[in-house]
Amino acid sequence: MRLILEVWRQESPRVPGRLEAYEITDAREEMSLLELLDRLNHQLVEENQEPVAFESDCREGICGTCGIDVNGVPHGPENNVPACGQHVRSFADGDTVRIEPFRAAGFPIIRDLIVDRTGLDRIIQAGGTVAVDAGTATDADTLLVTHEQAEAALDFAACIGCGACVSACPNGAAYLFTGAKLQHLALMPHGKMERGKRARSMIAQMEHEFGPCSQIGECALACPAGVPLSAIATLNKERLRALLRRKDN
């Protein structure tokens, strides 16, 4: 299969970037998009050109390291699938595919397709944690959690931290990411203790680095972990709750 790849090349944050077109003549349907980039890089290295820098690690959809915009869509054409699970079979022979880094003000470009997503980590550091030191936890069997509650917590905890939601959002908002963490921890017995405090500090940090939400919903379509859009409602609810209750929990 023949594909034209238009790939964003940018040597460093300080120099401007540009799209470069490359032709791949032997793409195969079963290749993942990242394997397609591997193929391209192989070709570039043979021609003594610098390969395209892009990130990946697990290549099985769980680590959240991969992340590229494909024809303007985070990760690629299939909804709720990370780039490492997207396949060439989504394209037709002769197609042009534009591959760019995740686009968001909160994600500065480092090189080519690699962006800096540590802003999400700073939201976690602001309060997406539980204040229990090693060895001090109570017996987990004595803290009853309903089957449903545990499953619901996992639906939100499943976030792989890739940042696709931010890139999908025209405003570059991190509401889905932050809302998912607030919901996950609000459902956990120990997490409840700092529920109000957490909402205040995480939301403040989020607003400091990322854009506002205008309820468009692109984020949930892009999310490889299928985090439900209700995470955004949760965030707004938790914000209000914390404001009204003025308590730590």
Partner: peptide
């Protein structure tokens, strides 16, 4: 033995039986 207690406390939502226990 206490690893599960700790990991659950710091946020791992372990699967639960219908009775609420791990």
């Amino acid at each position: 033995v206490r690893v599960i207690d700790h990991m659950q406390a710091i946020g791992a939502p372990f699967a639960r039986e219908y009775g609420g226990q791990l």
